[in-house]
């Protein structure tokens, strides 16, 4: 059987009317489950405090008289400056870090599936040791230029003397596991050290600090998800290209990446969303200038309890751009891999 248009391939099985009905029922039920809390946010954003407190009201104009007071407060009134600034910061930080993470992570994932790395354990330990000493020195106040030069010297000496004696080496899967293991420590355990690190670098309260942090935090996820996609892409194509004289970079850029578009899009959405919504690291790394929106949301629970109406407005205005991106990118996920077509 030949598929005429590779972009319109779907399950080849046609559904019977009954199956169709059941499928729709399930889909609609889950849609309801997903939508209802969002609907509730929407109506809450139009309620006065008293409408929230007096019990559940569902329909504006019928149950209660809607008010724009919360929208006014967030977008025009007292909080407008904060909202605008934090919104801008989020818009700068999240897409930048997500794109960088996608770029570096995809490259690393490709490397891990197509090359064999055998880093020697001895070298790694020497390198780590030096790095720790350098970072500790900078943290304790040594000038960073001196620290790095001393570190390089120390490293060369260590490599010449100690590292050559250890011959054990790691495998690709070890590298991958090491990467993902970086996500295992809960943020509370790393936030103060990261704060100190950026403080010594003088990067606190800059967009750069947040971008670097989210980049590092999200890289492992990109690497792992993309690794699986690359493993499912057949090698023949790349080998053909290599015979034709294409460089590795070219193979990666113009053959492998286009094939991995669904995975790339899905992964990009995640890292974008993670960076868009991150709270704890943003709280510590930002001051007045680079605060992001999740802080504004969390801040609506203050001494007088959660301000549901303000919170609802903020959550809604936060998800609108992400939904727009998701809608725009959805068709790329749906496009599907060309694997089958190529194999055939």
């Amino acid at each position: 059987m030949v598929i005429p248009n590779p972009f319109r391939r779907r399950s080849p099985v046609a559904l019977s009317p009954l199956e169709m009905a059941i499928s729709y029922l399930i889909l609609i039920i889950w849609t309801g489950v997903v939508i209802f809390p969002l609907y509730w946010l929407l109506v809450t954003s139009f309620k006065l405090p008293i409408d929230v407190n007096m019990g559940p009201f569902y329909l504006p104009f019928i149950d209660f008289q809607p008010s724009l007071h919360a929208w006014d407060y967030i977008l025009v009134g007292d909080l407008a400056n904060d909202t605008r600034r934090n919104y801008f910061n989020t818009v700068v930080v999240a897409p930048t870090s997500a794109s960088l993470a996608l770029l570096l992570g995809t490259a690393a994932a490709y490397g891990l599936t197509r090359f064999e790395y055998r880093p020697r354990l001895g070298l790694i330990l020497c390198f780590l040791g030096t790095l720790v000493i350098v970072v500790a020195a900078i943290t304790l106040g040594a000038p960073w230029q001196v620290a790095i030069l001393a570190g390089i010297a120390l490293f060369v000496i260590l490599v010449q003397t100690v590292a050559r004696r250890f011959q054990r080496s790691l495998k690709n899967s070890d590298i991958a596991f090491w990467l993902i293991s970086q996500r295992m420590l809960p943020p509370v355990a790393v936030v103060i050290p990261i704060y100190v690190l950026f403080q010594r670098l003088g990067l606190l309260d800059t967009h750069l600090a947040l971008i670097i942090t989210y980049l590092a935090v999200n890289l492992p996820i990109v690497v792992w998800l993309m690794r699986d996609y690359f493993q499912s892409i057949p090698l023949e194509l790349e080998e053909c290209a290599a015979i034709d004289g294409a460089s590795r970079y070219r193979i990666f850029w113009s053959i492998v990446l286009p094939l991995a578009v669904p995975g790339l899009v899905a992964t990009f959405l995640f890292v974008l969303v993670f960076a868009w919504n991150e709270y704890l690291l943003a709280l510590f790394l930002s001051g007045a200038k680079s605060q992001t929106l999740p802080l504004t949301v969390a801040a609506q629970n203050a001494t007088r309890g959660p301000q549901w109406w303000y919170m609802s407005v903020l959550i809604l205005i936060m998800i609108v751009p992400v939904i727009a991106i998701a809608v725009a990118l959805e068709r790329y996920i749906a496009r599907g891999l060309l694997v089958g077509a190529i194999k055939g």
């Binding site: 704060y195 309260d205 709280l283 510590f284 605060q291 802080l295 969390a298 801040a299 629970n301």
Partner: peptide, 26 residues
């Protein structure tokens, strides 16, 4: 006067971290 605000629940930590690490941005 620049008033800088952080969420209520994390104010204590934020003040202490700022002063204890010598950042002194406030």
């Amino acid at each position: 006067i620049n008033v800088i605000v952080v969420p209520f629940s994390d104010l204590y930590q934020k003040i202490l971290t700022d002063m204890a690490t010598g950042t002194n941005s406030f």
